[in-house]
Design a protein around this nucleic acid. Structure first.
Lengths: 234, 234
DNA sequence: TTCAAATGTGTATTTTTAACACATTATTAC
DNA sequence: GTAATAATGTGTTAAAAATACACATTTGAA
């Protein structure tokens, strides 16, 4: 109770208010490729979790905001600037990291895989199908699940999936993306009807190329209608 | 980049991976009284925010999980054990706390005000109508807004509001609670119909007492249908 | 030229949500 | 005890949203 009082009411933090704690952010970076939802992971080298996949994360710096830290990681890892990023949950279990007390705040982000293919090769980074991951290092499986669930809730009401697609895309690609995220089959006619009604799409009057079948029309996201990408749409 | 590698891949955290950071949790404790949604606040005594309301929070202990810390605060402040608690968001802006770098994880909780009236008197705690708070200490206004928004989303699909009511309640009380949370008027007939359809309620075959009008039937929450209070219902 | 595969399109049905009014019951005031 | 007050309790109709469903068209490939 004394500690509460000191903390809530009176001046500076005293030495014993601090302890050896590290703060990190972990990014669940989603991508979409070959009809599958994928997540960017890296092989874990610490002995406790040798060989398992882990998420991309880093310690937060003393003078760095949480959001800034996660943007930094994304930039460093994917080279991408203008990505969708959303804080999901903070994981603070005492024993979650073998190296000590590390609290991590999880973010999910949505990127178009094609936009940064080049950066991947010389690295141990890897796009892994979300559905095919059963085990990860640390509590990263739990983090991944939490972020996936949040993504699923999000896409139902909010136009965020466009961050996973190239600028121009067909309705088939869009539908297949929703099916991959939600893990369900959708009716093509109802899907199209709904999207046209919502007015989220702009018809580019162009056709797909290099597809082994009748090409579909290409669309782009009606961004003007929603303002900044990362802003929540009500 | 070196720091990323050390952190992600190799053994122990080195000294420079730590910095003077304090971790806290803040609880937005909601209650319902006199037809209003209220939040439990305390007068802030630090000079920068003298006289403003602040949320109830405390530093997390070195060996304490985040969830445990927020339960502890609730227990200390309200005397209540079995409360609904949900993590909402972590606030880590560099300058958010005048005493130093303090990162806080916000939780909201739902309690029945009547259950712990006694504990309040000798304290500076105060139940304040949510709608009448315009300014708070620190970034607590932002935290409150975030939690309120989360609560609003939550109550639409999930049976959590019962935590704000006494064991026995009338449909009028229940509806008035929804109206207070969502800040809208609801149609009484549709409201009742919906609740009976959802099968969330058990008719206690009792009537209200001490009401200055025709008493309504009393109900209790159909808890058996949903398992643990704090568990998410899909 | 034919085949395969995906595009593009509309209607009927069901379900959900929203709007809406009056008789009944208990309390209170006279 | 009678009348006034105030809230309870109850169904139907209309509108909107979600779902189910089939066939002709276009292009690429064989």
């Amino acid at each position: 109770m004394k500690q509460i009082s000191r903390f809530s009411h009176f001046g500076e933090l005293s030495d014993k208010d601090y302890f050896r704690i590290a703060l990190s952010v972990d990014c669940v970076i989603f991508g979409f490729e070959d009809g599958e939802l994928k997540v960017l992971v890296i092989k874990c080298n610490i002995k406790e979790y040798k060989g398992l996949w882990s998420l991309l994360g880093d310690l937060v710096k003393p003078d760095e905001d949480l959001d800034t830290a996660s943007y930094r990681i994304l930039k460093e890892r994917t080279g991408l600037d203008d990505v969708y990023l959303e804080q999901v949950q903070t994981f603070g279990q005492v024993g979650r990291h073998p190296a000590g007390r590390v609290i991590t705040t999880a973010y999910f982000s949505l990127v178009n895989i094609k936009d940064h293919q080049l950066k991947l090769s010389d690295n141990e980074l890897h796009w892994h199908p979300v559905n095919e991951i059963a085990e990860m290092a640390f509590d990263h499986m739990e983090i991944l699940k939490g972020c996936l669930e949040r993504l699923r809730e999000k896409v139902i009401d909010h136009p965020v999936v466009f961050n996973l697609l190239p600028k121009k895309f067909s309705l088939r690609e869009l539908q297949s993306l929703y099916e991959a995220i939600l893990n369900i089959k959708l009716d093509r006619r109802n899907f199209r009807k709904k999207f046209f009604m919502m007015d989220w799409l702009i018809d580019l009057e162009e056709l797909e190329e290099d597809v082994p079948h009748r090409p579909g029309k290409l669309y782009k996201f009606n961004q003007a209608k929603f303002g900044r990408k990362t802003k929540k749409v009500s």
